[in-house]
Nucleic acid binder design. Structure first.
Length: 151
DNA sequence: GCCAACGTTGGC
DNA sequence: GCCAACGTTGGC
């Protein structure tokens, strides 16, 4: 079992949206490192910290689970989609996604400030690294446990 | 809305 | 393969 953190802008897709739909294909990831985590790292049932970005306050707001193996993101082939990628070959899709399943909302937001205050305990945590922009990133079992203990 | 950080693109 | 230009992310 591996653990991850996935960012979403709540105005685009919030934890409440995930609760409503239950399971969501995580379309639109257009970063190779994030794609590689989904393709090579994620296994069915892995834990996901659901993080709200580009809002106030940013932070972890819920828990989700990896609900599928990685498969091609259909939006890359849809000319009407914001995520259309005309350079992705149909027979070798460039972009993959996984389905993300709702588990629960946290009782409170564990804010970015809360996480920064725990930097010493969390150790090497890419979310807190300078200039970090990855929308999908790994979390260790120890970090997972410690972060959720802050709830 | 600003802007620092960073990934990608494309000319050479 | 270098690197300047450009677009995007995301905190503030």
């Amino acid at each position: 079992m591996n653990y991850w953190l996935m960012k979403s802008e709540p105005e685009e897709f919030s934890i409440a949206d995930l609760e409503r739909v239950g399971t969501e294909p995580w379309s639109g990831v257009r970063n190779y490192q994030a794609r590689n985590y989904m393709r090579d790292g994620m296994k069915l049932g892995d834990g996901i910290l659901f993080y709200h970005s580009n809002c106030s306050p940013p932070g972890v707001v819920g828990i989700a689970r990896v609900a599928s193996a990685a498969y091609p993101d259909p939006t890359q082939f849809d000319p009407h989609s914001d995520y259309f990628d005309p350079r992705s070959p149909a027979d070798a899709p460039r972009w993959l996604l996984v389905d993300v399943g709702f588990e629960r909302a946290l009782r409170r937001t564990i804010t970015l400030d809360d996480l920064r205050a725990q930097a010493a305990t969390l150790g090497d945590f890419p979310l807190l690294a300078r200039g970090n922009r990855l929308s999908v990133l790994p979390v260790t079992a120890k970090q997972w446990k410690h972060i959720l203990s802050l709830e």
